[in-house]
Design a protein around this nucleic acid. Sequence first.
DNA 1: TTTAGATAGTTGCAAGTGAGACTATCTCGC
DNA 2: GCGAGATAGTCTCACTTGCAACTATCTAAA
Lengths: 158, 158
Amino acid sequence: MAKLDLFKFVPFRLNRLGAEVSAALSSEYRERYGLDIPEWRVIATLGFRNEACSAQYIAQCTRTHKSTISRAVTSLMERQLIERVENADDRREFRLAMTRRGTALYEELIPRLLRREQEILSCLSAQERKEFARLLGKIEDNLGLVQASQPMSEAEAY
Amino acid sequence: MAKLDLFKFVPFRLNRLGAEVSAALSSEYRERYGLDIPEWRVIATLGFRNEACSAQYIAQCTRTHKSTISRAVTSLMERQLIERVENADDRREFRLAMTRRGTALYEELIPRLLRREQEILSCLSAQERKEFARLLGKIEDNLGLVQASQPMSEAEAY
DNA sequence: TTTAGATAGTTGCAAGTGAGACTATCTCGC
DNA sequence: GCGAGATAGTCTCACTTGCAACTATCTAAA
């Protein structure tokens, strides 16, 4: 008879670990800065790329639904953490960019998050971390998840 | 200036991968058997353990909120996939167990899910899979996710 | 025995999110 | 230029889920 041990089943483990790690980090951006996950993803994307980009681009990069990104953008604009300008070339879309306040928040938040990441991975040696990242990359690749570290054009985004 | 590349940030990658893998598997239990994730977790826990167990136990094992498990249990009982009996020793709790129908579904579903898991991991060699599982285990351990109630086999200890 | 606190499970409520409709705009073929 | 189809972003609706209150029951200590 076929059996399946949930604790050895990789899909379950990844789902559980993903949720757990998110919860562990959310205290940094939620409790301290009032950001939820979609808002943090917008900030993270805009902060990493220096140039302004569209909501659609952020949605594709982060695999987040466009309506969710839309709400996050509205909220961040209300708090003046990001701003947007019409794109003269294509008036359907807006170019999003961080404000000075948004950038300040970003620079304060990033070191905290990187420290948390280090804590989570502190149980692995440098070699193991490298290996873990490599294996994660192979699986992401196999599932067709975007994993470019370089900024990509909209054309490549999908 | 501190920067953070979302695509290299392990918490983001784990969260995204966990969601993606869940979505890839959900077609098996949702579209074919009408189970959602909490229901599947109840079935998986009861199917793996031979003895009946409580809703609370399932909630703890799977790190799912007890109200979510409660709703899943109600739904599964309505479909006669599981049944429950009062525990004479402690009348607050119920002992949950699979029905014949539930067991039949379980045995039909498990091979499909294991096949999906293999597909997801097909990009890794046998050695790499073992290593990935080992590293996952270390991180789970570091976050306190290891379940003491289900002792790990020697195989997982490596 | 009584009572205070803990625990199992259920339920009402509110927040978050995805699907998909909708508007406005762009692109391409004619 | 014109119309069909594609695309960016917003909005409504329905669904899911976590939280917290609630009931019922158990445990332990006075």
